[in-house]
Amino acid sequence: MPTRRAVTGRSREPRARFAEELRSLRTRRGESLRQLGERLGWDWSLFGKMENGETLGGPEVVEALDQYYGTPGLLLALWELAINDQTQFRERYRRYMALEATATSLWHFAVSVLPGLLQTPAYAREVLAAGSLKGPELEQQVQARMGRRTLLDGDDAPPFRTILSEAVLRTPLRDAAAWREQLEYLGEMADRGNVTLQVLPLSAGMHGLVGTDMWFLRLPDGRTVAYSESTYRGDLIEENASVERLQRAYDAMRDLTLSPVESRKFALCTLEELPCRPST
């Protein structure tokens, strides 16, 4: 049985500690990721993403790994520490925001929610409230999100490309008037020279980024970093091989999208499906 390492306050950042332990246990056995996947019955690429810190996986796969490696409870304990590590999430998000402010170009994919750079106050408020924010903290976050939109203003604004899953445009706000305002604002932004909007129709089927929102930032030094985002957490990815793999998935998905012209027409059709404003 492998030696069990103590989980102490001296351990490194929980997410990195979890990934390191997974790599160590596998390499000590002399197994490849593909062999591990075959023996446990999971897609081997999932284990690669877990070892690179791109995902934590679910409790079922972690329990199976604990059993396979003969480390009862160790990996599950590390997983629980990592998944509850909100302090590190906030630090990564702050670093991402600092990088976003200096980016020379940005590109993005949305699974179900519009990117913050294209949100109206009403849209931002409903999205953030769905994530359990309320009161003064909610209003503070709405204002902060509106402040981000200035990134796309001015003659020196960076190019921004966003690919929206059709589901984004099929998930309205509760208030029809607020939803209309959001779609109209989206159309206005799509007319800007530095903004490119494309729609990925649901008929395109499965693709490599089907489960996550993704941001890519080109930095002044020529590097590209990625940021995967969900309602409750996000991950900044700076390792070159991981970023390149995600970029390839993004490029393959972009080949399935409608053209910018067709995408704008699609968004306008969505707007026309809304009830007309009541007469005054």
Rank of each mutant, 00 (worst) to 15 (best):
P2H: 11
L133P: 01
L106D: 00
G73D: 07
D191G: 14
G73P: 04
Q35M: 04
D156P: 00
S24C: 06
Y69M: 02
E272A: 12
E238C: 08
D235R: 11
G48T: 04
S45V: 04
Q86N: 11
T104M: 02
R277V: 13
A252S: 11
V261E: 10
G48R: 02
Y123T: 07
H207W: 00
E181M: 09
G30N: 04
G57T: 08
A19V: 07
E54C: 05
T55P: 06
T102S: 13
R29P: 00
R94I: 09
D251W: 02
S165A: 12
W44Y: 15
P136Q: 09
P159H: 10
T102E: 15
L256A: 02
P260H: 05
A176S: 10
P121V: 01
Q143D: 13
E13Y: 04
L117S: 11
G9K: 11
D155W: 02
D153Y: 12
Y227E: 06
Q182A: 05
T27R: 12
E63T: 10
E51A: 09
E181Q: 12
F109S: 05
L169N: 05
G205I: 00
Y68W: 15
L183E: 08
V199M: 02
G30D: 05
V61H: 04
E51P: 10
R92V: 05
G222L: 03
T3G: 13
R12G: 14
G53C: 07
L217F: 05
L183G: 07
R92A: 15
E60N: 11
R125D: 05
E51L: 09
V127S: 11
V61F: 07
A249F: 10
L78S: 04
D153K: 11
W44N: 06
T102W: 02
I237K: 00
P115E: 05
W179V: 00
H207P: 01
V210T: 03
E20P: 01
W179I: 00
L152G: 08
R248M: 10
R125H: 10
S228A: 15
D235T: 14
W179M: 07
R264F: 10
T196D: 08
T87K: 14
A226D: 01
